[in-house]
Design a protein around this nucleic acid. Structure first.
Lengths: 146, 146
DNA sequence: TCATTTCATTGGGGAACCCAACGACTTTTC
DNA sequence: GAAAAGTCGTTGGGTTCCCCAATGAAATGA
């Protein structure tokens, strides 16, 4: 029963540390993407569209865990900027087939570079070996592999 | 250059996984604390007050990284519920000396139990050894040790 | 004395997250 | 082939977290 330093009760909670680390990561990535004029979700959607195109909005949202409501706004932004196109799906007229434009592909490349740099900064305190280990643990905790 | 599975570009970003894991942790803790009628920040402030009392609001906010503006609202809630008291500091009349009431202490105990259970659920996929390792890495990434 | 700083408080706001309901359209089922 | 049930994109609402600017009161240092 050693005397705990002040604030240890909160600071030693995994959920607390996770929140702080995530906030730091978010801030670093947001700062990096701001140079391209994009938010985090713009980048995420852009990347998912490249991987899945042509894809319906509902499938897109499910793939990245984004609410359909919020996806509408993101796609409006991306389409206005000419990074993405929505085309009616002839096989199912309820659907929009979302695809990447050449401009969107180029911007995505730059975003990925920026995001990777931000993540390098985030993980700077860790060795390469520790980063691998960290990612492995993170994947198992995040519930992403379902 | 093995073909990456779809969505790997985003899902393999540490900042992305960190965000998902933190969201899961937040949800688990929020659910646990809801049984006591408290939000995450109520619990955090309550815990910090116990460790630091009597403490000025500004010091409290700095200790847990909470904006002074938001701290006002949290303390209003806690004081209305009789969990915390604000007393003018005779040595510096600008300050409010915040302290815990007996009720606040009892509720905090219950909150800590609930929060620990939620964190056990969060870390359930990890062995005890891996949890220690994960926490160590997390501390170094979160920028909390400054 | 007076300039600077810190205090608690009020104001506003951006961004991530989630839920309910709608018209248009599809598929299923009788 | 018509009604039922489900899905699509969209619009509406809402909560939580995180940060900045400005105020009046009070302390501090020159």
């Amino acid at each position: 029963m050693a005397a705990e330093p002040p604030l240890a009760a909160i600071r030693s909670l995994p959920s607390w540390l996770l929140g702080r680390a995530a906030a730091r990561g978010r801030a670093l990535v947001a700062e990096a993407l701001a140079a391209e004029g994009l938010k985090m979700w713009h980048h995420v959607v852009l990347s998912a569209v490249r991987d899945l195109a042509p894809v319906a909005q509902a499938d897109l949202g499910r793939g990245i865990g984004l609410d359909p409501k919020d996806l509408v706004g993101i796609l409006n932004d991306l389409q206005s900027a000419g990074l993405v196109v929505r085309a009616p799906d002839p096989r199912d007229r309820r659907k929009n087939a979302v695809s990447l434009t050449p401009d969107g592909g180029r911007l995505l490349d730059r975003c990925e570079k920026a995001a990777h740099q931000a993540n390098d900064t985030l993980l700077a305190p860790l060795s390469a070996d520790e980063r691998d280990r960290f990612m492995d643990l993170l994947i198992r905790i995040s519930g992403t592999e379902g």
